Amino acid sequence: MIIAIDGPAASGKGTLGKRLAHHYGYRHLDTGVIYRAVAKALLDAGADLTDEARAVAVAMELDPEKFGNPALKTQMVGEAASVVSAIPRVREALVNFQRQFAADPPGAVLDGRDIGTVICPNADVKIFVIADPKVRARRRTLEARARGEEADEALVLADILKRDERDQNRAIAPLKAAPDAYLLDNSHLDIEGGVRAAIDIVEAVRAGRQRV
């Protein structure tokens, strides 16, 4: 089974996907980390984030062993990743990696912003996660401070709104819900509540298929 989790509610989404994967014994991939890894490599090299050839070269040589680097979670890298992810050839270079991950047994949970629409359009379950931008900004600010980073909630909110607009209006793989995606609003849910809601969606789909 392939479970696709998308949506603008980035804060907590990766944790939701990880917990869902653990519940079902599946593998988990936070696809946003892939783009963050490309962005960080470019930042570290002092390269132009819009240098297509350089970005594609980095994307082709990614080391999955580095996906757990805490530095990938910083706001600066997140902003850079949004720029890099809008480069069509970078997205092309990373599509096969993501699809192969999804196809390998026993099953997978992938979360990002184009999983159900582009990467795995035939996913068994698609969940589109949303939350009020102010709630997302508050959560992200608390997460950053917990990592020992300084974070201005107003600036975080501005960044969230800017990124959402950019991702929703990009020409390639814009952020949008797949027609058959289930909406999950976690504005007022903690992570436990979000996980339970996601499991309920998956089980409803499985039960429906079993009745066919």
Rank of each mutant, 00 (worst) to 15 (best):
R136S: 06
V33W: 10
K13M: 07
I160E: 00
V156L: 02
R36W: 13
R170P: 06
S85G: 09
I119L: 04
G107L: 06
T74L: 12
I115H: 00
P70L: 04
Q100K: 15
D104N: 13
E192P: 10
A151W: 03
G25L: 04
P174V: 06
V125D: 02
E65A: 15
T15D: 11
Y35C: 07
D104T: 14
R209I: 12
V90H: 06
G25H: 07
I115R: 08
Y24T: 04
V38T: 02
R206Y: 09
R139D: 06
A57L: 05
A197W: 03
L16C: 06
E52R: 10
F128Q: 07
A59W: 02
H23R: 15
A103E: 14
D164W: 04
A37Q: 05
R140H: 02
G32H: 04
R209M: 13
A144V: 01
D159F: 03
A9D: 05
T117R: 03
A9F: 01
A80Y: 02
P179V: 01
L16G: 12
F128W: 14
A123D: 02
R138L: 13
G14P: 13
V109P: 02
A41C: 13
F97S: 11
I127C: 00
R54Y: 13
A171L: 14
Q168N: 06
R147T: 04
P88K: 08
D200N: 15
R170A: 02
Q100W: 11
A80W: 10
E65T: 08
A37R: 11
L155H: 14
P105C: 00
E150P: 11
R91Q: 14
E52Q: 06
V205Q: 11
V109D: 12
G107S: 08
F101T: 05
R145E: 12
I199Y: 03
V135W: 09
V90Y: 10
A93W: 06
P174I: 03
R99A: 09
I2K: 13
E92I: 04
A47D: 08
A154R: 13
A144R: 10
V56N: 04
H28M: 12
D44A: 10
V38M: 12
R140I: 01
S82P: 01
R139M: 02
D200W: 01
L155G: 15
S11V: 11
L49T: 12
D111M: 05
A4N: 05
V90G: 06
D48Q: 10
F101Y: 07
L175N: 01
A146W: 04
L29M: 09
A154W: 04
G193P: 15
T74S: 15
